[in-house]
């Protein structure tokens, strides 16, 4: 019976093979990120470049509401400085780079005396300001769909940072008969292929302070690394703790096994 079905299936394979032509998104291209693997760590200089890409390009449309400027100076963060860490009795709020980056932005607030809406320079405790005052405004300016918040983007998509890096480089002419409406773009890594976001990156669009050549690939990978840090800021702490825990557990298991052998030595089982 099973053989008959297999034969029938094989015969039908020849007839119905090319029936699956639906636009499938391309798998993201692999990137050798520094934070991969059990001992992987963030590359701080890359995170700094990535932050610059976010600040100068992405942040004009995308919010990052879960991030505060102080986070930039947290351990393993892009602007962490051991001089301003808990060991010195200080926090990232004292880090002058973090203070300066915060002060570069304008934060909407209320005047403490009059209650009137004002803007003021940011402080490290402030969250990243959002580009639009509310979701309706975000939708209205972007063809009806609000640009997603990027705080967790590297964990909220299959493929994570590699997907982000691929997507940012994946623009091109439409494949196999996809038609684009005005304001739409073709991106082979985006599910369905049709994306509202215009190609955000270009050669030399962001100038890197460390002299790194500003290619689209460089910008895409740097901002993807930055977004991975933003989504999982405790990753280094987690892996470090995991290493100690595993060493302890392996030794402890070994001791328990030795005890087990000793206790059961004279008992058949």
């Amino acid at each position: 019976m099973l053989r008959k079905v297999t034969l029938l299936a094989a015969a039908l394979l020849l007839v119905g093979g090319p029936a699956m032509a639906a636009a499938k998104a391309h798998e993201p291209e692999p990137v050798a990120f520094s934070f991969e693997g059990p001992f992987g760590r963030f590359n701080q200089v890359q995170l700094q470049r990535g932050y610059k890409v976010y600040r100068e390009v992405c942040s004009s449309c995308h919010s990052m509401t879960l991030l505060a400027f102080r986070n930039l100076g947290d351990p393993s963060g892009p602007f962490f400085d051991p001089e301003y860490s808990a060991e010195k009795g200080l926090t990232s709020n004292d880090n002058p780079v973090v203070k300066a980056l915060a002060a570069d932005t304008q934060i909407p607030d209320l005047d403490g005396e009059t209650g009137d809406p004002i803007t003021r320079p940011g402080i490290p405790a402030d969250r990243f300001p959002s580009p639009f005052p509310n979701i309706i405004a975000a939708k209205a300016s972007n063809g009806g769909i609000a640009p997603p918040d990027l705080s967790l983007m590297a964990k909220a998509r299959e493929g994570g940072p590699e997907y982000i890096a691929s997507l940012l480089q994946g623009y091109g002419p439409p494949e196999h008969g996809v038609t684009l409406a005005p304001g739409q773009h073709y991106n082979k890594y985006f599910p369905g292929g049709v994306i509202g976001m215009a190609p955000p990156l270009a050669v030399d669009k962001v100038s890197f302070d460390d002299g790194t050549k500003s290619t689209v690939k460089q910008q895409a990978e740097d901002v993807a690394a930055f977004l991975m840090w933003a989504a999982e800021p405790k990753m280094e702490e987690r892996k470090k703790m995991g290493f100690s825990v595993l060493i302890f557990l392996v030794l402890f298991s070994g001791m328990l096994y030795a005890s087990y052998r000793r206790v059961w030595k004279n008992e058949s089982h």
Binding site: K239, G242, V245, L246, L249, V250, F252, S253
Partner: peptide
């Protein structure tokens, strides 16, 4: 239990 915790720790931390 200790061996099971190793499995748990691999998922939890990595």
């Amino acid at each position: 239990m200790s061996v099971f915790l190793i499995l748990f720790a691999v998922f939890l931390f990595y």
